[in-house]
Design a protein around this nucleic acid. Structure first.
Length: 414
RNA sequence: GGAGAAGUGGGAGAGCUGGUUUAAUCCGCGCCCCUGCUAAGGGCGAGUGGGCUUUAUAAGCUCACCGAGGGUUCGAAUCCCUUCUUCUCCUCCA
């Protein structure tokens, strides 16, 4: 959640930032008003409560002293009645405020490039040259047919469209990749975690998926539970509502989980293959960092993900997202896009974000800074999306006959 | 899934026949004092979140928080309802 005090005290600056993220001025003015009226409603109610409390204390005293209480009782009854509408008003004001505030996206960093959509993202650098093929490289689904790696039809039969099954060598490759990713992350200091793939609504609100993006999630019927869309949710929320010591920071975590996304495919993109599925595997990095150190951690995470691609021999580019392409919770995001020769384009394979204190404020993750409690910064990034890595290996390591080589670093894992 | 019991401040643990409890006490913690020395003793302090005020690198006042959410009452840690969690015993099971 954004800092409402900041919004109130620096309205012009704050609204300029959020307007670039598609929030109109009227919504922000409304938010500011709601914040003010909540404070007013609470002030009135609390003054009345204070009076009620002090009168109630007199009650005990009077009774011990054997004094008459009828007059006091009448006063206190009247005050209680007067509080009812105040209470109602305060409750409504709070509800109205949070309804709007929780749907407000994060402020982008100053450094984020201007722009509307992915066309305006800024390429920072390219790593490794795409290899020249002496034949026309095939797309991964064509290669899948030749090698029998992916069973789309039976995946659909088991669940529904946009589910699939990996078979044989492909399944082993997936397992090898997961292990390789986890081991590499561990070497960089990320502690491996194995977490629940189902989380409750409070956790999803903590990281920003709820309440605004409920339609993107698979919900468990009759339960306050959702399939996680990314390990960012359980890993970040491990420290939900906790106060850490400064010494513990940064907390570096990694974990493998499947990810479940209901929205995948709603735009009709990538209908063939396993680029966009309702369920996919991912190894995630999450960091909880001291605000002064989060940028440093962010760069380390980008470096790590890029190094993994390099180790796999996969050409990729590092792209900084512009305002318009930035996600809801992110203050700044860098994507890694891997080269897919079959598609003849770069495709996103990792997304690394610093949310600053946006998630920390929602999830109440703080640390002791001297005597004071301050919000931490939270960061997350894929290292890497497993399914898309398989696609990248298939297309980059294909031979003319459709057979696929296994990258050198993975051989010890298979 | 069934039956019973319990959830209190960093930990332990009273209170739970509703009103000096603004949560006792112990341990642990921080600072200080005393003591010629890894001991003992003494004093002080300390939770979280929000609001207001001011002589504003801080202080004062106030509201809420005894698992969570409702309710009864002038007043709730204490009574009622719902819910979550833990423990014990069954049941089931990888």
């Amino acid at each position: 959640m954004i800092d409402l005090k900041y919004l109130q005290n620096n309205f012009e600056e704050a609204s300029a930032k959020l307007q670039k993220k598609g929030v109109d001025a009227a919504t922000l003015e409304n938010l500011q008003k709601l914040f003010t009226s909540l404070k007013e409603a609470n002030a009135t109610l609390e003054a009345s409560k204070a009076e009620q409390n002090s009168m109630s204390k007199l009650f005990g005293q009077y009774m011990r002293e054997g004094k008459d209480i009828t007059e006091l009782k009448a006063k206190v009854d009247a005050n209680k009645e007067a509080m009812v509408p105040m209470q109602e008003k305060a409750r409504e004001a709070e509800e109205a405020l949070y309804h709007v505030a929780l749907a407000m996206p994060n402020f982008p960093d100053e450094s984020v490039p201007e722009g509307e959509d992915e066309e305006d993202n800024v390429e920072l650098r390219k790593v490794l040259e795409p290899k020249e093929f002496s034949f026309k490289p095939k797309e991964h689904w064509e290669l899948s047919e030749i090698n029998g790696w992916i069973d789309f039809e039976r995946g659909v039969k088991l669940a529904k469209s946009r589910f699939s099954v990996l078979r044989g060598e492909a399944s082993r490759l997936e397992r090898a990749l997961i292990n390789f990713f986890l081991d590499t992350n561990a070497q960089k200091g990320f502690i491996e975690h194995s977490v629940p793939f189902i989380n409750n609504s409070a956790m999803l609100q903590g990281t920003g998926q709820l309440p605004k993006f409920e339609d993107d999630l698979f919900k468990i019927d009759d339960e306050d539970l959702y399939l996680i869309p990314t390990a960012e949710v359980p890993l970040t929320n491990l420290y939900n509502d906790e106060i850490l010591t400064e010494k513990e920071l940064p907390l570096l975590m990694t974990g493998y989980t499947p990810c479940f996304r209901k929205e995948a495919g709603s735009a009709g993109r990538d209908t063939r293959g396993i680029i966009r599925q309702h369920q996919f595997n991912k190894v995630e990095m999450v960091a909880i960092a001291h605000p002064a150190k989060s940028q440093e951690v962010f760069e380390m995470m980008v470096e790590n993900a890029s190094d993994i691609l390099t180790a796999l021999g996969l050409p990729h580019r590092v792209v900084e997202l512009c305002y318009g392409d930035l996600g809801f919770s992110a203050a700044t995001t860098i994507d890694l896009e891997v080269w897919l020769p079959g598609q003849n384009q770069y495709r996103e394979i990792s997304s690394i974000s610093n949310t600053r204190d946006f998630q920390a404020r929602r999830a109440k993750i703080r640390f002791k800074d001297g005597k004071k409690n301050r919000f931490v910064h939270t960061l997350n990034g894929s290292s890497l999306a497993v399914g898309r890595t398989i696609v990248a290996i298939m297309e980059n390591y294909q031979n003319e006959d459709g057979s696929i080589e296994i990258p050198e670093v993975l051989k010890k894992y298979m």
